[in-house]
Amino acid sequence: MFDGITPQLLFGQLLIGVINGSFYAMLAMGLAIIFGLMHVVNFAHGAQYMLGAFVAWLLLTHLGIPYWGALFIAPVVVAIFGIVMERLLLKPIANLDHLYSLLVTYAATLVIEGLIRQQYGSTGLPYNSPLPGGVNLGFMFMPWYRLWVVVFSVVTCLGTWLLIEHTKLGSYLRAANESPEIVESFGINVPRMMTLTYGFGVGLAGLSGVLAAPVYQVSPSMGSGLMITIFAVVVIGGMGSIIGAILTGYLLGIVEGLTKVFYPEGAGLVIFFIMLLALIFRPSGLFSGTEKS
């Protein structure tokens, strides 16, 4: 049945799966961090990811700042943008039903994407790989940049997870996740913590965007297309579970890649089917140990 499957095809798709999974994991992690503390489902996460890629492109095209510079500058720019967004759009409605924050970030997505598309058109802009070439592993060709993406995303996810699980700052975050009121009653400026957390999560999206620029084309809709998958990842992993978001992200990327090998027609649907199965058989999420809804 699987006669036509060469190692090149299998490992090639597996690599694409891991690459996609790297982005799923990083974005879902940011979404889970923001949701955990603020109970905001940040629909604009995809648009902010796109902004990261765009800022990198602008830095290169207009200021001649290469990828390695953009990797630091763009996330900061996007994080500052996120902080302004939090102050203007999310803070005023923090005490309302959380559906409003989903809707307001959705509305912001329309505006951000619309403005970028109006300015730069909807076709993709090329961004050359800063690490051309690669290595032949015998069973497959491994481009350097893709290797860098995988390593970088694993380090970022692991680092963020350690930061949250094993530092004082992280204990504030986990505690405020459970009860912001009590943490604030200890004299901690929780509103500012929320602003900074949103900025951090959005910065992570921006960082993913820079990382993605050389892999995918830089286009206005590169983020919103991804949001459906990211939502599914977060729902499957269990809302607000950071480790759940990370693991589910990689897992779904790999599963999607393997589906392309063994059942190409199903590749577009497999994540959705997993979400259906997870909802029906694990209604509280795969990694729902600390889940709160």
């Binding site: 504030y172 505690a175 009860s179 009590i182 009653s185 200890f186």
Partner: peptide
């Protein structure tokens, strides 16, 4: 948080022990 910084500490009825934190983390929060 500003009120707390004036020097008032509050222990709520439901005690507010954080489930995701160890006893030591709770104490040093």
């Amino acid at each position: 948080y500003q009120i707390a910084r004036q020097g008032i500490a509050y222990c709520p009825e439901e005690r507010g022990i954080f489930a995701s934190l160890s006893v030591r983390e709770n104490l040093s929060l």
